[in-house]
C-alpha cells in the first residue's frame, strides 16, 4: 500500500534519512520506532512531502508521491496527524473538523461528525468549545478526528502518546484498534514501546535515518542485540 524505496532526506545541511526503505501493507498497523533525532518525524514528513526527499521514491497505491504538494498527498488518501497535535486553537471543535473535511472516498464508510463523536464522546460534549480550552488528551483526540474527516486510507500518527497521561493512551489503543477494524492502515511513529506493542502488527526501527530492524514484535523480543542497542531501558 505504502512503499518507501531508498529515501534520502536533508534538513538544511543535515542528512537525516539515509536510504530508508520499508512498506505498510493494506490494513496493517506498522510502528516506526527509534530515539528522538533518529528521523521518525522526518520520515513521516517525507511521506507527506512536507520535507522533500532528495532521492528515492515514495509510492502509495501505485502512485509516486515525490514532487506532489502536501495537499495532493492528503487528497490521495493519506491522513497526517502531526507531532504536538497542531490543532487550530482559535477554532471550535466543529470548525477544526470542517478544515479536515474532504469528499467521500470509494471503499470507505465516510466519516462525519456523528461517527467521530461516537468514537470520541469527550469531543461531542465540547463541540462548540475552542481548541485552546481542551486538555492535551482531548487535543490529541481532536487532531486524530480532524484527520479522519478527510476519509484517509492510511493514517500517519506522529508520536501521539507524547506527553499524554497513561490512562488516555489506553483509550488511544482502543481507538487505533477500532480504526484498524474499519480497514485503515496505520503508520505509527512512537517512542513508547509499551504502546506500540499493544497496537502494531510490525515494528520498523530506525537509527540515524537508517533502518535497523523490520519484523514482528515477537521477532523483536527474540532479537536481544537490537533490543538492547536501540530500545531497552
Amino acid at each position: 500500500m505504502l512503499k518507501l524505496s531508498e529515501i534520502n532526506s536533508h534538513y538544511g545541511k543535515a542528512h537525516i534519512l539515509n536510504n530508508l526503505s520499508f512498506c505498510v501493507g493494506p490494513g496493517e498497523v506498522v510502528s516506526l520506532l527509534g530515539r528522538n533525532g533518529a528521523g521518525k518525524t522526518t520520515t513521516v514528513k517525507s511521506i507527506m512531502q512536507l520535507v522533500r526527499p532528495s532521492s528515492g521514491d515514495v509510492d502509495f497505491e501505485g502512485q509516486s508521491l515525490v514532487r506532489s504538494a502536501p495537499h495532493q498527498v492528503a487528497k490521495l488518501g493519506i491522513g497526517y496527524v502531526p507531532e504536538e497535535r497542531r490543532i487550530f486553537t482559535d477554532l471550535t471543535i466543529l470548525e477544526n473538523l470542517e478544515v479536515g473535511k474532504q469528499p467521500a472516498r470509494k471503499g470507505i464508510a465516510p466519516w462525519n461528525q456523528q461517527r467521530l463523536f461516537d468514537i470520541f464522546p469527550n469531543l461531542s460534549e465540547r463541540r462548540n468549545n475552542r481548541g485552546k480550552a481542551l486538555s492535551g488528551g482531548e487535543q490529541q483526540m481532536l487532531s486524530i478526528a480532524r484527520t479522519l474527516m478527510g476519509n484517509p486510507r492510511l493514517l500517519l500518527l506522529d508520536e501521539p502518546s507524547e506527553g499524554i497521561a497513561p490512562v488516555i493512551v489506553e483509550q488511544m489503543v482502543t481507538t487505533i484498534l477500532k480504526l484498524k477494524e474499519e480497514g485503515l492502515s496505520v503508520l505509527l511513529s512512537e517512542q513508547n514501546l509499551h504502546f506500540a506493542r499493544l497496537v502494531a502488527d510490525r515494528a520498523v526501527i530506525i537509527e540515524s535515518g537508517e533502518k535497523k530492524f523490520d519484523g514482528t514484535f515477537d521477532e523483536l523480543e527474540a532479537n536481544t542485540e537490537i533490543r538492547d542497542a536501540y530500545l531497552s531501558v
Binding site: S161, V169, E170, H194, R227
Partner: peptide, 20 residues
C-alpha cells in the same frame, strides 16, 4: 490508578523494571 495510571499496560511492572 483511575484518573491517571490506568491499567498498568503502559509502564513497567515493579517486577520487571530491568527490561522493557
Amino acid at each position: 490508578q483511575e484518573v491517571y495510571l490506568g491499567g498498568g499496560n503502559l509502564y513497567n511492572n515493579a517486577a520487571d523494571t530491568h527490561h522493557a
